[in-house]
């Protein structure tokens, strides 16, 4: 049966490989990701206006192509006459930074605790898993609101809060994978060769949990984008006049019936960002798996 299994596995790999390189949606997502990343990095160079620059004369101008459109304001202006495109670009820059740093904090925190919980089957595991259960049981938005209300909202506090938001998912995934892997003979083989626990965790366990972690990272990234938007929408996230995608949607809410374009640009960016990140995650996972590579 092993011979057949080999052939079947090779066949599947080939199909998976074709999907990894040739999928049209993945190519579009890849292109979008490059464009978005470039836009975020080069924002100060490409933004047509200062995002904080008010001009009450040209307030609430619709996007180019409509009646009364202001000169140069491609996506129109908001209630204070600020350029929507420039604000959206700066907003995305901030949101992306928050999301990346936040997701990384969650990854490091949750990943480390997950490895410890998976390897040390003792009170330590019970304690970590109890924390995980608590984090799941308590609606995190409430906790975030409380922390931000007490400590006040600045970018540092915000990024820490966003980071802590997703750690429990990483911890659960990593712990389950580590427990599965420690039963595998190659871990025992490493132990028999004289490897210590830290070495095994670093060289044998981590590379094998990368795939699920990458997927979780991209999920967390989009979750954080949405959480940040929620907090900013509620007024506890990024403080005006500094723009973030969430706060733009939040502040633009009042003008929805008369000036929907204020909300439109940041909302479209939120959707595009989350979509791109998800597809990118699938692509990365396939790339990271050496077993999907051709013989």
């Amino acid at each position: 049966m092993t011979g057949l299994a080999d052939i079947v596995a090779r066949h599947r790999r080939r199909r998976a490989g074709a999907a990894a390189g040739g999928d049209i949606i993945q190519r579009i997502a890849l292109l979008l990701a490059v464009l978005l990343a470039a836009a975020a990095i080069l924002t100060p160079l490409i933004a047509p206006f200062d995002p904080l620059d008010q001009s009450l004369i040209s307030r609430l101008r619709p996007p180019a192509g409509f009646d009364r459109a202001g000169p140069g304001h491609l996506f129109g202006t908001d209630e204070l006459g600020r350029d929507v495109l420039s604000r959206a670009l700066y907003g995305m820059r901030l949101t992306l930074t928050l999301a990346f740093v936040g997701a990384l904090i969650g990854l490091c925190l949750g990943g480390t605790l997950g490895v410890i919980a998976g390897l040390r089957r003792s009170w330590l595991e019970d304690a970590i898993m109890a924390l995980v259960d608590m984090q799941i049981a308590i609606p995190f938005t409430l906790v975030a609101l409380l922390v931000l209300a007490v400590l006040g909202s600045n970018v540092t506090v915000l990024v820490l809060v966003l980071g802590v938001a997703g750690w429990e998912q990483y911890a659960r995934i990593v712990r389950a994978e580590v427990r599965r892997l420690t039963g595998q003979p190659f871990i025992e083989a490493a132990r028999a060769a004289g490897a210590g626990t830290v070495y095994i965790a670093r060289r044998h366990l981590l590379p094998n949990v990368v795939s699920p972690l990458v997927v979780q990272f991209t999920l967390a990234l989009s979750n954080i984008v949405i959480l940040e938007s929620t907090l900013s929408f509620l007024g506890l996230g990024v403080q005006p006049p500094q723009p973030s995608l969430g706060s733009m949607v939040g502040l633009g809410r009042d003008y929805m019936p008369t000036a929907p374009w204020i909300v439109l640009a940041p909302a479209a960016l939120i959707v595009t960002l989350t979509f791109t990140v998800q597809i990118l995650g699938d692509w990365l996972r396939d790339r990271a798996d050496v077993r999907l590579q051709e013989r």
Binding site: P185, E188, A189, N208, V210, V290, R291
Partner: peptide, 12 residues
């Protein structure tokens, strides 16, 4: 070990 499929780390 017995199982040559499982006793080698697939990622190394």
């Amino acid at each position: 070990f017995q199982d040559p499929y499982a006793s080698l780390n697939p990622r190394m």
